[in-house]
Design a protein around this nucleic acid. Structure first.
Lengths: 242, 242
DNA sequence: ACAGCTGTCATTGCATACAATGGGCCAATC
DNA sequence: GATTGGCCCATTGTATGCAATGACAGCTGT
């Protein structure tokens, strides 16, 4: 039941990852209160590392202060279709920027990359057709495809920003994947256009293909999110008088 | 001498801001060791808020762990021309994305914005001509111009990412401003092209103007950064035996 | 019934105590 | 003089203590 908390990295880092994962994978749902002591118990650490992790998660927008006094209680941030459009727009902008450099790489390296991308996309197609859906695998492949080409050219700074946006996207993708039976076909076929542009070494086309992909994906995802009932911030239940 | 630490927000947040400002404005220089207890003394707080601030700054890349054991010592991250190219590229991508939406705003709102931008750009031109240079003012105006139009259309998520990248850029701009006597003319004239495209309501042109501006600025800034001698990570001096 | 008030206590904010690590000085050795 | 090994202590990592805050149950008056 407890997260294993892989044994490398500092405690705050690991609890940060653990908590973020609980949120991304919907184990902690939008509106859920999170308490320091509760999470300290859950992760078998003291409140100090938890506090650091919380601060980080607030800063990045996974947790939101409710009732903004000096003593701020925290809850998991709501999902909104506006956020989808913004996040997807940024992914388009960032990946579009990255893919331009990728399309200008020397032939050999580009063709190796293209082969990898084709492989990943094929696996994604297979996984999309497979029944019952393996949500974790789809999730993994979806991410791998994009990370594969972004990391090919990105330096430290871009990675940093990209890696801070991507988990937000993943949170929505998780909901999309578990909620809808929508085909992964539009996505994989858009991926093929991206691959083709990279193969031909056309920066402008590659960028356009990436941006179009994210724009379309935004529409698909936003529709799903709008159907989800808002869960209200649930307050702590008061311990009944004995 | 001590930072005043404006009295709103939590202690960790305020020390985070304070520390980041020390780094951006070169008061803490690339390679400088930072110690928890030292900063706790400086900001008149305990180590706990400092730790949170440090964690944040590491995550965002202002501080870098040196000697990655379990007990990680921290130093201010080096300035590199590679980072300039990446950061400026991202700013181009993000602002380019934002400015498209701005150029599609209804006429009235767009024209008010255009008037503001012209005003800011004129002030920037004046400040650029003024001798002696008022570095703080140039710094302020430079930022205001860009923030003005980005915030005009950006939602919460974009602001969050934008605001996390911008201070990095500012750190380099500060160095550029204090190191070089380079004219602000290229910059302000590129600003005018951006303004013109917004006024005409041309998203594609506006985006192109913004991207071109950041690409050119990258070249100007990278040149300056490359001239700066690398300061080496300075280790803690050992207290002499008494 | 319902609005406003109040005391209580769950919970957070910050400080500090204690444990543990590893950097670097020094001595011993080659 | 250069190199190795071992110890010390500066510094970080984590836990815990204590004060302050503000949410809410229950009371009171209308």
């Amino acid at each position: 039941m407890d997260q294993p908390l892989v044994d490398h990295g500092t405690l705050p880092d690991r609890t940060y990852e653990g908590l973020r994962d609980l949120i991304i994978r919907g184990r902690l749902r939008a509106g859920d209160r999170v308490r320091e002591s509760e999470m300290a118990l859950h992760f078998h650490v003291s409140r100090t590392p938890i506090r650091e992790a919380f601060a980080q998660l607030v800063h990045e927008g996974y947790l939101t202060p409710i009732s903004g006094g000096r003593r701020t209680e925290l809850a998991v941030t709501q999902l909104t279709s506006d956020s989808v459009r913004e996040l997807w727009g940024m992914m388009g902008a960032l990946e579009g920027y990255a893919v331009q450099a990728v399309a200008e790489l020397p032939n050999v390296r580009r063709l190796i990359l293209v082969a990898d991308l084709k492989h990943l996309n094929n696996e994604l197609m297979d996984a999309g057709d497979h029944r019952p859906r393996n949500q974790d695998r789809l999730f993994e492949l979806q991410t791998s495809f994009h990370v594969r080409f972004v990391y090919e050219s990105a330096g430290e700074r871009l990675r940093n920003v990209y890696d801070s946006v991507r988990p937000h996207v993943q949170r929505y993708e998780w909901v999309y994947g578990t909620r809808s039976n929508a085909s992964y076909e539009p996505s994989t076929s858009e991926h093929r256009r991206i691959i083709a542009a990279i193969r031909r070494g056309e920066p402008a086309e590659a960028r356009h293909a990436v941006e179009t992909h994210w724009r379309n994906a935004a529409t698909r995802t936003a529709r799903t999110i709008e159907e989800i009932p808002q869960t209200h911030p649930r307050r702590a239940p008061r311990k009944p008088k004995s």
